[in-house]
């Protein structure tokens, strides 16, 4: 349906589990931005559009994202935007911008530095300010509600949950990095991620196997937990439908979850069976940097396509308490032997 084919052509992220002590957001971002731009062969400031995602509340000061712009090379001035959301939604805004024809390439980045404060307290400020936030229910409390609802519904069992939560979680380099915690209580780390998007022939020039975005959609649910069925994720299901996720099987799914209970909810909503490889990046979404974690899921799925390890992948990002808002993207690589040299606009 899309008038232009748009692909993820580059992805970079900062190292796992390194607190960014003493680093500013711009300093944390700079090497990641350069990595992504180098992969795409773009100079700083050369992308037609730049879009980022972050939250002032992590840095503890308003307009924190403006200082990150120092790492982007916004001189001469650039066409640029920012969402106070996970970077996955910045990617969505950039994708729309490319679809309008106003841009052919876009740099998308996100960063989070939760070590600046107490994330468990900070995230309570995200809740209804009149009725819920005054109770300071932290993410662990809300995760417990969701987990209890799933246990009561018989959709997960306690033994599996304990095993999953307590097991050391392998990181990308194969070393165990996880520690046992209560659901939703694993500490997020500092970090940044960046992605380059490009349309048509430009994407083919920048990347030997672009990860074509076949569809993206995102949906929100009511904020009131009492109005929602916490054992289900209708917003994920609807977003997946609209993104075309059910039109053909995927071989890979990168899911942005805080704990095993959320993964169970998503697996059901997305109809993922045993044939689908889930989170092969070895990342631990629960400990990925807040505000970049969703973009990292998209980037990891794309990178797997770049490497030829996946042909059709689903990537998911979430925001808000107990999976309130969800984004689903479907990415595809072309089969080997594809001519891959069609002029831009030939594919519709």
């Amino acid at each position: 349906m899309t008038p232009r084919d748009v692909a993820v052509v580059a992805f970079a992220r900062s190292g796992h589990h390194e607190p960014a002590d003493g680093l500013s957001e711009a300093e944390m971002l700079l090497p990641v931005l350069h990595d992504a731009l180098d992969q795409a062969g773009l100079a700083p400031g050369e992308a037609d559009f730049t879009c980022s995602g972050s939250s002032d509340y992590l840095a503890g000061r308003p307009f924190s994202f403006t200082l990150a712009l120092d790492g982007v090379g916004a001189w001469p001035p650039i066409a640029e935007s920012h969402v106070e959301m996970d970077g996955a939604w910045a990617l969505y805004e950039a994708w729309v911008k490319i679809l309008t024809g106003q841009a052919g390439t876009a740099l998308v980045y996100a960063h989070g530095k939760p070590s600046s404060g107490d994330l468990r307290d900070v995230l309570t400020r995200q809740l209804d300010p009149y009725y819920l936030a005054p109770l300071w229910p932290d993410p662990a409390c809300l995760a417990a509600l969701q987990t209890r609802a799933l246990l009561d519904a018989g959709l997960i069992d306690e033994a599996a949950l304990l095993t999953d939560e307590a097991a050391p979680v392998p990181s990308a380099d194969g070393h165990p990095s996880g520690t046992p915690h209560a659901p939703g209580a694993r500490a997020a780390t500092d970090g940044a991620a960046a992605v380059v998007l490009a349309a048509g022939a430009t994407a083919r020039r920048m990347c030997t196997r672009p990860a074509w975005i076949r569809g993206i959609d995102h949906r929100i649910e009511s904020h009131a937990l009492g109005l929602r069925d916490l054992t289900d994720s209708p917003s994920t299901r609807l977003a997946a439908e609209r993104a075309g996720a059910f039109d053909a099987p995927v071989d890979t799914a990168e899911l942005h979850t805080a704990d095993a209970a959320q993964e169970a909810v998503l697996r059901r909503a997305l109809r993922l069976d045993g044939t689908v490889t889930v989170n092969p990046s070895g990342g631990t979404p629960a400990t990925d940097p807040v505000m970049a974690a969703g973009l990292i899921r998209l980037g990891e799925a794309a990178a797997r396509i770049h490497r030829g390890a996946s042909d059709r992948a689903l990537a998911h990002a979430t925001s808000g308490p107990c999976l309130q808002q969800n984004l689903v993207a479907v990415l595809e690589g072309e089969p080997a032997g594809h001519p891959g040299a069609e002029p831009e606009g030939a594919r519709t």
Binding site: S55, Y57, V83, Q126, D128, I220, S222, A224, L238, Q325
Partner: peptide
């Protein structure tokens, strides 16, 4: 209020729809 669009989803009649928050 951190990312108040989450809480405002109901007031904006947005349940089941896409919401983008720009800053």
């Amino acid at each position: 209020v951190m990312m108040p669009e989450l809480y405002l989803a109901d007031a904006l009649g947005a349940a089941g729809k896409p919401v983008l928050r720009v800053h």
